[in-house]
Structures are given as structure tokens and as C-alpha cells.
């Protein structure tokens, strides 16, 4: 273990130097519609170079104050997000939403302790149960960017339904499939749909808590929403169905590949060695996410193929 730490230090010491001193994510809001802004993360996994700036977070400037949607991967990210919002508007932050319990979406909550943080009940339970492990993992992967990051779970359970905030008609939708509870927020006033991690665009979908059948059902329902702009959880915002289609096509292929392999008796290491179709080669991290998804999902497909043996 010690030896490995030493090796890691050697590897990362040189390129990190300059960046690490300032720990500046250089967050710059991208305006997608009236009152509506997105901080667009890199389509990468956590690394010491990106510090965990790998997720889209957003805010809506309403008449009465600012609504924040997801808080990023670290305490520093949440703090810098708040500073960047203050450059756009002097209005106070009045509500924060956590769309689901994944670390890149809520570990910035510490910077919003003075504001109600709202999430679906199952999301709050997930943040409480897995927050410590997530924070350790982000620190292990992103390094000192995550110093001082502690899980601060959402403190107000929210039920699906309409909510008017400062003149914006926000529809809070509670679906699932990416995790047990995935919140989607549709701003009827602007037509912006915050789809969070039910939709990935040009970045492979992640499946550590996924139930694919539920995910497909959620995608079908998202497609029926008359949005003008969709903000995916990862990848650039879009104005049409291309991100939904890409997420669905990739997950359908994953589902079919794993089911067929299990039915043919394939072993996990054999499934790992299969090629990924060219149509998905433009999607960032597709090879590593495919490999991770086998670890998350294959054993449940396999279980369906085994029958009790008699004594």
C-alpha cells in the first residue's frame, strides 16, 4: 500500500503543481434561457486534474431569489458555485435541490447550509447512508480538491408536484432508474427541463444504482415533456431529443448485450472482452463505463439463468 502511494505521488506530482495551488474550478455560468444558467462540467471521470468538475449544475434567478439545482462534487465546488452565482445576481439563494444521491450532485451542499436543501425522501436516505463512503471516494480520486468535503444531506423532503417560486412554475417530478429516486425539474415558465442523470449526452451513462427497466420507463416519460431546452446531468444542453435517444440506445444495447451473454452462459471476464459497437465510439468513457456496468449489473442477469439443483 505504502509503495503504491509513493508511486502515485511520483506520477501526479509534476503536472499537478501549478493547478493545485489555487483549486479554482473557473466556474462560468452558461445562459440557456431567460433566468436559467448552467455550469457545464467536463465529460470525464473524477481526476486530480479536474477536481470533480464533471457534472452539470444549474440555477434559476426568480423574482424572489435563486433556485439552485445540484451542488457539485466537493465543498470547494459548492463555494465557488455560490461566488459565481453572486456575480450574476445579488439576490439571495432561497432553495437548493439535490436531484439524486450521487456524490457529484450533492457533496457541494456544505456551501448551502443556510438554505433549505430539498430532495426526494429516498435521495435523502441515500445521502445519509452512502455520503461518507462517497466523500472518501471523491477524495481518493480527485485528491486535495476534496479537502474538507463532508456529506451534508438534504434537510427537507419534497413530494412530486407543482411549486411556484418567484413567478416560476416548477414541476417537481420523481422518477427513477438511474437511482432509486431521480428528480427531474421542468420549469413551465421558461421551458427548461433539468433532466439530471436520467439523461447523459456524449458521456456514457453510469449504472452503480441503476434498474434499467425503470430507467427506460423514465426516458419514455421525459420524451413526452414539451421542453425547449434540456439540461442533461452530464454533457451539453440540447434543444431536441438527441440526448434522450443516445442514452436510450446505449442502455438498450447494454441491456441486450448482458442478457444475451448471460443466456449463453458467458462469464464476466468474457463479457468484458467484447467490443463496443462503433455507433457508441464518440461517447466519452464508454469503455470504462461498460466495464463498470458489468460489475454492477451482470450478476442479476446471470441469476435468472441458474436453476436450483436437487440433492
Amino acid at each position: 500500500m505504502k509503495l503504491r502511494t509513493a508511486l502515485l505521488l511520483l506520477v501526479f506530482w509534476l503536472p499537478l503543481g501549478a493547478l493545485a495551488e489555487s483549486f479554482d474550478y473557473r466556474l462560468s455560468p452558461y445562459r440557456v434561457a431567460d433566468d436559467s444558467y448552467v455550469f457545464i462540467g467536463k465529460t470525464e471521470d473524477f481526476t486530480p486534474a479536474n477536481g470533480g468538475n464533471i457534472v452539470n449544475t444549474a440555477f434559476i434567478v426568480t423574482r424572489d431569489g435563486v433556485v439552485v439545482i445540484d451542488t457539485g462534487s466537493t465543498r470547494r465546488y459548492g463555494e465557488q458555485m455560490r461566488q459565481a452565482i453572486a456575480k450574476v445576481t445579488p439576490k439571495p439563494i432561497i432553495k437548493v435541490f439535490n436531484t439524486h444521491h450521487h456524490p457529484d450532485h450533492f457533496l457541494g451542499n456544505q456551501a448551502f447550509k443556510d438554505v433549505p436543501i430539498l430532495a426526494l425522501p429516498a435521495t435523502i436516505a441515500g445521502e445519509q447512508a452512502e455520503g461518507d463512503a462517497f466523500a472518501n471516494n471523491v477524495y481518493r480520486m480527485a485528491g486535495d480538491w476534496a479537502l474538507g468535503t463532508e456529506p451534508f444531506p438534504a434537510n427537507q423532503a419534497v413530494q412530486p408536484g407543482h411549486m411556484t417560486v418567484g413567478g416560476h412554475d416548477l414541476e417537481i417530478i420523481g422518477w427513477g432508474g438511474h437511482t432509486a429516486a431521480d428528480m427531474v425539474i421542468f420549469d413551465h415558465t421558461t421551458g427548461v427541463l433539468f433532466a439530471a442523470d436520467l439523461v447523459f449526452y456524449n458521456r456514457a451513462a453510469t449504472t452503480p444504482h441503476a434498474v434499467l427497466a425503470n430507467w427506460f420507463a423514465s426516458l419514455d416519460r421525459i420524451q413526452k415533456i414539451p421542453f425547449k431546452v434540456m439540461v442533461p446531468g452530464h454533457g451539453l444542453p440540447v434543444m431536441d431529443n438527441r440526448a434522450i435517444d443516445q442514452t436510450r440506445n446505449y442502455l438498450h444495447w447494454l441491456d441486450r448485450t448482458l442478457r444475451d451473454a448471460a443466456r449463453n452462459g458467458a462469464e464476466m471476464t468474457e463479457v468484458l472482452a467484447r467490443p463496443i459497437p462503433a455507433e457508441f465510439s464518440e461517447i466519452a468513457l464508454v469503455a470504462s463505463e461498460y466495464s463498470r456496468s458489468i460489475a454492477h449489473l451482470y450478476r442479476s442477469y446471470e441469476a435468472e439463468t441458474l436453476a436450483p439443483a436437487s440433492h
Binding site: T269, E270, L272, A273, S288, S291, R292, I294, A295, H296
Partner: peptide, 9 residues
């Protein structure tokens, strides 16, 4: 010997 590069689980 075959296996993943990184053990996810």
C-alpha cells in the same frame, strides 16, 4: 488470466 483492469466491486 483474464479480469477487469480496475475492480469496480
Amino acid at each position: 488470466v483474464s479480469g477487469p483492469k480496475i475492480a469496480e466491486d
